[in-house]
Simulated scan of single mutants.
Amino acid sequence: MSRRAAARRVVVVGGAGLVFVVGLMQLVPYGWTKTNPPVTADAPWPDAESEAIARESCYSCHSNETDWPAYSYLAPMSWLVRRDVDRGREELNFSEWGERSDAGDAADEVEDGAMPPRQYTVIHRGARLTEDEARVLATALERMDDEGG
């Protein structure tokens, strides 16, 4: 067998194996269910600007108003998205304000540049915060925290 034929065989067999493994991944049920529970208590945004920034940069993981992108239906991305949304809602949920709301910690995360996370903003470029947007959002979160959020 020539080198070219051997290389072609490796590519074909490897590609078929990859397709098979990705197909098997689709059978793992984690990430299949994508829910947006009802909004029970909207976050009390102090102004429209901060709310608009939060909706663009935070709500996909930190609310019950998640926009489930097409890639969230295919493993292994579905697993990652589901995990991120579950964790985000657990930490801070703008749709269930007052139940577990710690806007002060969220403001610190925004000020430190930890939120929104880089792995999210790489794909969702509109979620990236400018310095001014981060300042507006952090100030609003601190104000909401001071008002009992």
Rank of each mutant, 00 (worst) to 15 (best):
A5N: 07
N36Q: 06
A7V: 10
G148Y: 08
D67F: 14
T139C: 04
S101K: 00
L24C: 14
Y59W: 13
R118M: 11
E91D: 04
G17D: 06
R83F: 00
V11Y: 03
R89G: 05
Y73N: 10
S63H: 01
L74V: 14
Y120A: 15
D67L: 15
G17L: 11
E49H: 15
V11W: 13
L141Q: 02
R87E: 15
W68P: 01
T121E: 13
V81F: 07
Y30G: 00
V81I: 06
R83M: 01
P29W: 10
V19N: 10
P117Y: 09
Y59M: 05
A7N: 08
W45N: 13
S72V: 01
P116H: 03
R8C: 08
R89M: 06
E51G: 14
G113R: 12
D108K: 13
S60L: 01
T66C: 02
Y73F: 03
W68V: 05
S72F: 01
E65I: 01
T33Y: 02
A103V: 07
V12I: 09
H124Y: 09
T35A: 04
A138C: 10
V12L: 13
L24G: 11
A107C: 14
A106P: 02
V110F: 11
V39A: 02
P38I: 12
E90I: 06
A16N: 07
D145F: 11
G104M: 08
A43L: 15
W45H: 09
E111Y: 06
F94M: 07
R55I: 14
D67E: 08
T40Y: 04
S78P: 00
E131I: 14
L137A: 12
P46M: 08
W97T: 00
G31Y: 10
G14S: 13
V12G: 14
P38H: 09
E109I: 01
P69W: 04
A5W: 05
A43N: 13
H62S: 03
W45T: 10
A140K: 03
V13F: 12
V81T: 02
P29K: 09
G126D: 11
A138P: 04
P46N: 11
T130D: 07
H124N: 15
E90T: 12
V22G: 08
P38W: 13
R128N: 02
W68Q: 10
W68G: 00
T139Y: 03
A6G: 09
G149D: 15
E91S: 05
G17S: 15
A107Q: 11
D42H: 14
F20W: 15
R135G: 10
S60K: 05
L129S: 15
P76N: 14
F20Y: 12
D105N: 09
C61K: 07
G23A: 08
R4W: 01
V10Y: 13
E65C: 01
R9L: 07
V21C: 15
C58I: 02
V28H: 08
A138E: 08
V110C: 12
A140P: 07
L27Y: 04
G148L: 10
T33C: 01
A16M: 05
E109C: 03
R89I: 01
D42W: 00
R125M: 04
F94N: 04
E99D: 15
E96H: 00
G17Q: 07
G14Q: 05
L27W: 10
P69M: 14
